[in-house]
């Protein structure tokens, strides 16, 4: 039996990918070696990383949540609308209400998927479409008004001893998620359900509760990212979550989590979010069209997935 590495090899593969991007970028494009650039990347990666953490909980179950782009936008709209209110007690409610919205959508997703056994992909697509409709109808064709509360701006844009607060937030969320996955009954059930839900039921556990909780947490984290992004841009805007859909799922899957559920590690998701952010950043620095960027992104993601698949088959 080969010696077990302390870290999953696919995590090392991704980190190597990160180093290559920074090295190639630094040599051919410039500015990549500066600490300002790298810190900025950590800041941007945080939003993707927290989304990916939530998405991973659901994917471990063998489900998927495609409703987060507009859940996130909804929370952002709530926070900026209420945060821009004139009375201060209303302003204080902005963040809790934004989080509650994300949690509520997640709960609805969880209950429907767990109780009605509807395929989560179709259900969450429908929810995403409904949220989009509500947001656009409510806002008309205008940009959402208002502004983000100070606390949110500090979290999203500020930094402590030179380290972006957003990154510190991501680390804190990561610690919590890692504990949930590794250290709790909930975490063990996530993997167990992803592997064989029927067996979990026969063993006397109740898969429904775990499923509802996982979706609820994913919704909560999506709402949280919506709030952070509202602070980052000091505004909410239609479609602000759309660019995150594919990168988030890519980050989780590249990180070695099986889309069928039951297999995955959080370190991979963390590294995956870093990798995807660096890749998108490098692609946006070089002057190419959006279409070319999309093609390169697709090809590289596909290559990573095939490589990882081949490695697993050999092992």
């Amino acid at each position: 039996m080969p010696k077990r590495l302390p870290v999953d090899p696919s995590v090392l593969l991704i980190l190597a990918g990160c180093v290559i991007i920074v090295a190639v970028g630094g040599i051919f494009i410039g500015n990549f070696f500066t600490s300002a650039y790298l810190l900025q990347q950590l800041q941007i990666a945080s939003f993707l990383g927290i989304l990916a953490a939530g998405a991973m909980l659901v994917i471990l179950l063998g489900h998927i949540d495609l409703s987060f782009p507009w859940t996130l936008t909804g929370s952002a709209i709530i926070v900026t609308t209420i945060g821009g209110a004139t009375s201060s007690w209303l302003q204080d409610l902005a963040i809790p209400l934004g989080l509650a919205f994300g949690l509520l959508i997640g709960l609805i997703n969880g209950v429907v998927v767990a109780k009605l056994r509807i395929p989560s992909m179709v259900w969450t697509l429908a929810v995403n479409s409904m949220l989009l409709g509500i947001a656009i109808y409510y806002q008309g064709e205008h940009r959402p008004q208002g502004q983000a509360p100070e606390l949110v701006k500090t979290l999203a844009v500020g930094s402590t001893f030179g380290v972006p607060n957003a990154f510190l937030t991501w680390v804190a969320v990561s610690a919590a998620v890692l504990w949930l996955i590794r250290g709790t009954r909930f975490g063990r059930l996530l993997f167990a359900i992803g592997n064989n839900e029927k067996a979990v039921f026969l063993a006397g556990a109740r898969p429904e509760r775990t499923i509802i909780l996982a979706f609820a947490l994913a919704g909560l984290l999506a709402g949280f990212v919506g709030i952070l992004l509202a602070g980052y841009a000091n505004q909410a805007y239609q479609g602000m979550g759309n660019p995150y859909l594919m990168p988030t799922i890519a980050a989780v899957v590249i990180g070695g989590t099986s889309i069928l559920g039951g297999r995955g590690n959080y370190a991979g998701t963390f590294a995956g979010a870093l990798f995807v952010t660096l890749l998108l950043s490098a692609l946006s620095v070089i002057q190419i069209s959006e279409a070319t960027r999309q093609i390169i992104f697709g090809v590289l993601i596909l290559a990573m997935l095939i490589l990882d698949g081949l490695r697993r088959r050999d092992a």
Binding site: M246, S258, F297, G298, I301, L302, L305, G309
Partner: peptide, 15 residues
């Protein structure tokens, strides 16, 4: 490539 259909086609769709 043994990539799950949902991710495989998400990526090829982008291409």
């Amino acid at each position: 490539g043994r990539v799950e259909p949902i991710v495989a086609t998400l990526a090829t769709g982008a291409i």
